[in-house]
Design a binder for these strands. Structure first.
Length: 731
DNA sequence: CCGAGCCTTGTTTTT
DNA sequence: CAAGGCTCGG
């Protein structure tokens, strides 16, 4: 028997050895799913069932793809060339670069990131005269994205649109598509949409790829959306050799169009499909598994499965009851301190629902001198200075990219203001040319004559680098560009501290380009840009240094740790506010919690705060997920002190909740985060975090809009919204 | 055209 | 409360 089939349990062996026909592998958390996938790929190759180029394996992150690549190579004892293990997006990007002409695109097309797309949507809204009204760029862009994820093109959307709002969105969508095409650009959704369209409408190309891929494998199938489903459908040949691996309990991307039905209906979609369940969890303790299973069993949309492990029961989950977000951070960091004796920092993670929650933890960790790293949030490539620099590179590669043009034509400042940029855009649209072309021949336009002198240096710079781009190595080119733009000098004079980190970012961007040039002999600027456009923060994350990691629950999917902290367990935060009303969304939140719990091998700490400030509101009800964990698996630690604000109903509480929190006989010295009318009458002495002590001289409004006039000593009279100011009553 | 300061506004998760 | 958009004065 082949070595690749050894050391597998029965279900695993079956999954690896079943190569023909549609196969669904339902893989519970930590059932060695990646091992199965890589073994299966290696098995197909070693049995010579297919050549590497005839295999297609798709994952969701570059990191996972890279790891799979390495593991397949090591299973086979060397490197494997031409094996397509990639993300959906990068597979499509490469496909489209090859086949661009069939779509009327140039192969040097630009990939718009989220920001670029929103900017374009904003431009379109303005152009249609819809600006300032109910049509905001982000929601509109989101609608367009949703449509594309369902494979509804602009035309089709238009046809079925009814009513003012939908028809307006349809107009925005149509213009958006026209403009993005003129920019020779595609957004993330287009990459998938255009690929599916081309495979569907072009017989020859469709046939070519269908006959090329003999075996297709998909990881995280539960997170595929409709377009991705169609993509797979259009790539699977008659052999129907498609193997998907997933766990419906870990489907957490519904908001991005992921359709859980894809995995639930797999057996219907691909007739004759075989289903193999990997139910054994090898890593987590029995207690963790029991807790996770108990919580997830509250969901309706799932296939029944039972995880089991041979590890012992292990420790109970620790539930930390804390006062506030700040207190939570302090208690968690304190715990990390004691845990450090037994668990390395790199094996510990703090998971939260929203990126914004990271701040208090950062502060506390810094104060306690605990090294940490944050994954996600604003990724490197989204930083302003990097985006600016990349906009130059993008424009150099693709002069049709109006969005990049718009971003940098006046950065660094060249005295080209909003008016001039608008003029350029209008003229370019009128004459059906790109903004850059319009700038090139500014002299021909009466409207731009006066600006020609200022546009000239910019245009010359771009032209210079357009010539250089074929010959100069990308890192040298970037370095020269930075020097020409005097970017470092500009950033240095901007702001002492922020400027310094920006300079460092620029430098590490250049270093990244150099590394890419070293490892890719035929590195070109356009392929480099395409690659980094699809790069995320997670992809560069490595658990090497002994640092504690902070990230969102979404980002944590697929990672594992000894000890996991899940913080902010309150109704309205986790589960998120809008999920409270929607059973489907609530189930997704529960799956997210399940993902969080199953990240842990040994220990879990949960925390819930009595009071949490969020945009002037109080979230103060423990998450229902806590109650869904059987009591005997929980150990409660009460850190709460002082007064709790008891909400009167489920969900988020507004300020008036606090009213009942201060009984007339409240002990002195108790810290009140909020006060309402009854506590803030004229004459009371209060303490403000920045203004210090003051006396209330007037009270206006009530509840949400309660405003106070406070006379602060040495500062004077201030009008303050009680809702926002963290006032302490001191007298 | 540019920058300061006012006002509004939003508030999930990300390939 | 913070960040971003927008208006206004230089």
């Amino acid at each position: 028997m082949s070595r690749l089939l050894e050391n597998l349990n029965e279900a695993q062996l079956e999954a690896v050895a079943t190569t023909e026909g549609p196969l669904l592998v339902v893989a519970g958390a930590w059932s060695f799913k990646t091992k199965i996938l890589t073994r299966r790929l290696a098995h197909i190759l070693s049995e010579r069932l297919a050549e590497p180029y005839q295999l297609l394996a798709v994952t969701f992150t570059n990191k996972a793809a890279g790891e799979m690549n390495d593991r397949v190579a090591s299973e086979l004892g060397g490197t494997v060339n031409a094996l397509s293990i990639s993300t959906f997006h990068s597979f499509c990007a490469r496909f489209l670069r090859r086949e661009a002409e069939h779509l009327g695109y140039d192969s040097g097309f630009t990939i718009f990131d989220e920001d670029d797309s929103v900017t374009l949507a904003k431009n379109c809204i303005a152009e249609l005269g819809l600006a300032g009204s109910q049509f905001k760029p982000k929601p509109q862009r989101r609608k367009i994205s949703e449509a594309k994820n369902k494979m509804i093109g602009a035309e089709q959307f238009s046809k079925s649109a009814s009513g003012y709002f939908e028809t307006s969105t349809a107009k925005i969508y149509e213009l958006y598509q026209r403009r993005i095409r003129e920019c020779n650009a595609m957004d993330f959704d287009d990459l998938l949409f255009n690929t599916v369209e081309l495979l569907r409408d072009n017989q020859e190309i469709g046939e070519k790829y269908r006959s090329r891929f003999k075996y297709i494998m998909v990881d995280e199938y539960q997170d595929t959306n409709h377009v991705q489903y169609l993509l797979l459908k259009s790539l699977v040949g008659e052999h129907q050799n498609i193997c998907v691996v997933g766990d419906e309990d870990q489907s957490i991307y519904g908001w991005r169009g992921a359709d859980i039905r894809n995995i639930l209906d797999f057996e219907k979609d691909f007739s004759g499909a075989k289903v193999i369940k990997l139910e054994r969890n090898y890593r987590s303790t029995g207690t963790i598994l029991k807790a996770a299973s108990a919580v997830i069993s509250n969901n309706m949309a799932r296939k029944e499965k039972t995880l089991w492990t041979e590890s012992g029961d292990g420790d109970k989950l620790v539930l930390m009851l804390v006062n506030s977000a700040e207190d939570e951070a302090a208690q968690v960091v304190g715990r990390i301190g004691t845990e450090q004796a037994t668990t390395a920092l790199k094996d510990t993670v703090i998971l939260y629902r929203t990126n914004a929650q990271s701040r208090p933890f950062e502060e506390q960790l810094r104060r306690a001198n605990v090294p940490y790293q944050i994954v996600g949030g604003i990724s490197f490539y989204q930083r302003r200075e990097i985006k600016d620099l990349m906009a130059y590179l993008k424009l150099i590669v693709n002069p049709a990219d109006d969005i990049s043009f718009q971003r940098i034509v006046n950065y660094p400042l060249r005295g080209i203001g909003k008016k001039s940029i608008d003029d350029i855009l209008t003229l370019a649209h009128r004459d059906n040319i790109s903004s850059y072309q319009a700038a090139l021949k500014a002299g021909d336009y009466a409207e731009l004559k006066g600006k020609q002198k200022r546009l000239q240096p910019f245009v010359e710079l771009i032209e210079k680098y357009r010539e250089k781009r074929e010959t100069a190595p990308i890192d040298i080119l970037t370095q020269d560009l930075v020097a020409d733009l005097k970017l470092i000098e500009a950033l240095r004079s901007e702001d002492e501290i922020v400027g310094q980190t920006r300079i460092e970012n620029i430098e590490s961007f250049i270093e990244g380009a150099a590394a890419y040039a070293r490892s890719n002999a035929d590195a070109h600027l356009d392929t480099y840009l395409a690659e980094i456009s699809l790069f995320t923060d997670l992809d560069s994350y490595a658990e090497i240094e002994d640092k504690i990691t902070l990230m969102t629950l979404h980002t944590a999917k697929g990672l594992e740790y000894e000890t996991v902290f899940i913080v902010g367990l309150e109704e309205g935060l986790f589960p998120m506010g809008r999920a409270l009303a929607d059973p489907m969304e609530l189930e997704e939140e529960r799956r997210l919690f399940y993902v969080g719990v199953t990240r842990a091998k040994k220990k879990i700490f949960l925390s819930t705060a009595a009071i949490r400030h969020r945009f002037g509101e109080v979230v103060s009800m423990p998450s229902r997920f806590i109650a869904e964990i059987p009591d005997e698996l929980l150990e409660k630690v009460n850190y709460r002190s002082g007064v709790h604000i008891e909400p009167t109903r489920a969900g988020t509480g507004r300020l008036p909740y606090a009213r009942s929190s201060r009984p007339a006989s409240a002990p002195k010295g108790v810290h009140y985060e909020y006060e309402t009318e009854d506590g803030v009458g004229e004459g009371r002495i209060v303490e403000h975090p920045t203004f210090g002590r003051g006396k209330i001289v007037a009270v206006e409004g009530f509840g949400e809009s309660l405003r106070l006039d406070i006379m602060f000593s040495g500062i004077g009279l201030k009008k303050i919204m009680a809702k926002y100011a963290k006032l302490k009553i001191v007298g």
